[in-house]
């Protein structure tokens, strides 16, 4: 059940923001001439990825948190260099996941414990080790198919100058998260 924010004014604010993002997306895909497409896709890449990150939370069933963590926020952590800047913060502002407020955190390898989602930036090396440390209840998101081979759950892929994402089914099965089949139906499934 989606939980509505008690103040309708805020809710409308969120709607408008999402709408703005989607509009930008639509213009980027449909409206722009091909010549400047590369440039635009680069400038639009991270707003799209930010929107996708938010949307992932809605197609995944999260394990119930421990009693103590129920009042805590739902943390979206960025590990390594932050490519989003303020875009991600704007995107998730006021959003919640299963009743918990969604917050963006910039973390390092040592402070992954409170994260529900870890976005592994391109800057990070020895990714497989980070992933092992993250545990099966944390959604790991990274860049490129190699991220999946390293044991990541979802990887952003650029395909025909558009942002898509890939999933390795074996990995998702091992995790404690329940991925919606609808999410999988739009993902690029990668084996090994």
């Amino acid at each position: 059940m989606p939980r509505r924010n008690p103040t309708s004014g805020l809710a409308r604010g969120h709607d408008l923001r999402i709408l703005a993002v989607l509009c930008l997306l639509a213009t980027a895909i449909i409206g722009q001439p091909r010549v400047s497409a590369r440039e635009d896709s680069q400038t639009l890449e991270y707003p799209v990825k930010a929107a996708f990150l938010l949307n992932f939370t809605k197609f995944i069933e999260w394990p119930s948190p421990a009693k103590t963590a129920q009042e805590a926020s739902f943390n979206l952590c960025i590990l390594g260099d932050d490519p989003f800047g303020s875009i991600l913060d704007q995107t998730v502002r006021g959003e919640s996941v299963e009743g918990r407020r969604l917050e963006v955190k910039r973390v390092n390898r040592e402070s992954l414990g409170a994260c529900n989602i870890v976005y592994v930036s391109k800057s990070e090396k020895a990714v497989s080790e980070i992933l092992k440390a993250a545990g099966p209840e944390v959604l790991t998101v990274g860049e490129g198919e190699n991220f999946l081979r390293d044991g990541g759950m979802i990887a952003f892929i650029i395909e025909n100058r558009r942002v898509r994402f890939g999933v390795r089914l074996a990995t998702t099965r091992e995790s404690a998260l329940r991925f919606s089949s609808r999410l999988l139906s739009v993902a690029r499934l990668v084996e090994n």
Binding site: L25, N55, K58, F59, R162, F165, R182, L183, S185, V186
Partner: peptide
Amino acid sequence: TDNTTAALAFDD
């Protein structure tokens, strides 16, 4: 509508 929600959400 159910089956196309994801496609719409992920712009596919």
